[in-house]
Design a protein around this nucleic acid. Sequence first.
DNA 1: ACACTATATCTACCAAACTAAATATAGTGT
DNA 2: ACACTATATTTAGTTTGGTAGATATAGTGT
Lengths: 115, 115
Amino acid sequence: MQPEPLFRALSDSTRLRCLALLAEHSELCVCELTHALALPQPKISHHLGGLRKVGLVCDRKEGLWIYYRINPELPQWVDSILKATVTGVGQREPFASDAQALSEMPNRPGGVCSA
Amino acid sequence: MQPEPLFRALSDSTRLRCLALLAEHSELCVCELTHALALPQPKISHHLGGLRKVGLVCDRKEGLWIYYRINPELPQWVDSILKATVTGVGQREPFASDAQALSEMPNRPGGVCSA
DNA sequence: ACACTATATCTACCAAACTAAATATAGTGT
DNA sequence: ACACTATATTTAGTTTGGTAGATATAGTGT
């Protein structure tokens, strides 16, 4: 993985918020992310596409839903960067509120039992 | 430190190359970086200004030269990100060639004896 | 077939940022 | 005072990338 596109992907607030949630939930569908971040669905989809394009996330289709997860085959140094980032900023806003909003979302599909 | 400006700073090739060199040389002046990267001096200065603005580097003036170093007071998670990046991509091009070009530079000023 | 939900794509607009080149600032030595 | 070196800033042009909104695709249930 090239560092420049990686860091560019990490330089946007919407993408970082998605990644921060994904880092703690193994997989989430678009509607969960849309709810947690309270942003328009096309915007979320657009940014998830960007994350997928650089290889940071992958997706899985199940029925009507598409579940995203952090790519489990990331190079170790990339994984370290993600972990360091979540450690460093995960308690701040808006990340904390996003996690809270997600946990309070009613009618969540599938993978609720994930870590 | 905010993550978005940090990652945006890391998303440019010129800035990454400067940081990679600084990560292994404690301090370097602008002319050393300009020589190592073989880029126009105003371009190097401009990008160093960007790195300084987000707090990734600081500088020290000595006579005609301005020495840059990685900010020694970076938050731990930011330091982890820098180290992971250098570990992950430091051996690749153009970083390896930059280090080589720096080591072969004649008439280097001041801090040559740095690690 | 139809309505509904979930997601993706497309279009147009706008702002941020990289680049190149010229020029300005500032320190040094003669 | 002048020439020279090192560095920073400014300007203009171009591109990249984010946003909003509309629309398309696709799966589900009736």
